[in-house]
């Protein structure tokens, strides 16, 4: 299934060409089972790990405020050679160096699994929705972008993009069957870089919608609605019913008119059930 392969390659081109100095470009590799990764982290993962509210006053760094710049996409493929499993790339400043700041934030998740197909697209979209599963990291409930807060508490324990990336890899692999490789790109360098990343992936949503539509069709849902009154074989029946309704209403009006001795105000001058 090569629907997003071109976009994965374009993201890789972006990673190579983005104009940042070496100190703002980090590549981290992580390996191990989801459980091994989880146990290596200084924070808790899993349902309820981030229970409670992360107030603005308790925020160490804000990521992806839409005014600062934000984008998030998930690309998947069944060509496992396109995804470097466990690779986390950060372009831009890291969280520990950004106390009190609101950083632009781009996040691209690249997933691979040999058996992945169009019918998996819908469930794969669930992967980045992590709810309260990463301690001290709150994703605001937005739909088209990522807007997150990192709490002061976990920042004090060294929370950075390596930890965030590893957390995502562990959670997604454990929650999403069929995934054998995950690679993550984080971009915090500038609003322009995040915008460029968003433009690379701008087709992704439309392609995903088409995949969903096909998947729903296969499951028997009629999503086209490609019929109207003119093409419906029951149209004469509906027409008859309308005529009957008009007659009944007319008779009722006449009866009321006769009883009240007054006219109905402003009869509606068009067919309401048309």
């Amino acid at each position: 299934m090569a629907v997003f392969d071109g976009h994965i390659k374009a993201v890789r081109d972006f990673m190579r060409s983005v104009p940042v100095t070496d100190d703002l470009y980090q590549e981290i590799d992580c390996s191990g089972t989801p459980e091994e990764i989880r146990s290596s982290l200084p924070i808790n993962l899993g349902r309820g790990a981030s229970s409670g509210i992360h107030l603005r006053s308790n925020t160490y760094t804000e990521l992806g405020n839409p005014i600062a710049g934000s984008c998030s996409h998930l690309l998947w493929t069944n060509n496992t050679s396109l995804v470097r499993d466990g690779r986390i790339t950060l372009i831009g400043p890291d969280i520990p160096a950004s106390e009190g700041e609101s950083l632009p934030f781009g996040q691209i998740l690249m997933l691979a699994g040999e058996t992945l197909g169009a019918n998996d697209h819908e469930r794969l979209q669930q992967a980045p929705i992590i709810g309260d599963r990463i301690e001290g990291y709150m994703l605001k409930s937005t739909s088209d972008y990522l807007w997150a807060r990192v709490s002061k508490d976990v920042a004090a324990r060294g929370f950075n993009f390596e930890i965030l990336g590893k957390s995502l890899i562990s959670l997604i692999k454990s929650r999403t069957p069929g995934i054998s490789a995950i690679e993550i790109l984080f971009v915090t360098s500038s609003k322009e870089d995040v915008k460029e990343l968003a433009s690379i992936a701008s087709e992704v949503k439309g392609l995903g919608s088409n995949l969903l539509k096909e998947a729903w069709k296969e499951r028997g849902f009629d999503v086209e609605c490609d019929f109207d009154c003119a093409s419906c074989h029951d149209e004469p029946v509906c027409d008859d019913i309308r005529e009957v309704i008009v007659g009944v209403k007319k008779a009722a009006r006449e009866k009321r008119k006769a009883e009240d001795g007054k006219a109905v105000e402003h009869p509606i001058p068009f067919k309401l059930n048309a």
């Binding site: 979209q125 669930q126 929705i129 709810g131 309260d132 409930s141 919608s209």
Partner: peptide
Amino acid sequence: IDSPMIRQARGTAENFSNDIRRIVEDYK
């Protein structure tokens, strides 16, 4: 695209399913 009811009923059906997925997870 964002306004309530407009977002769901004007657009494609995936807004219904995506909103359910997100809200169920985020709001427990």
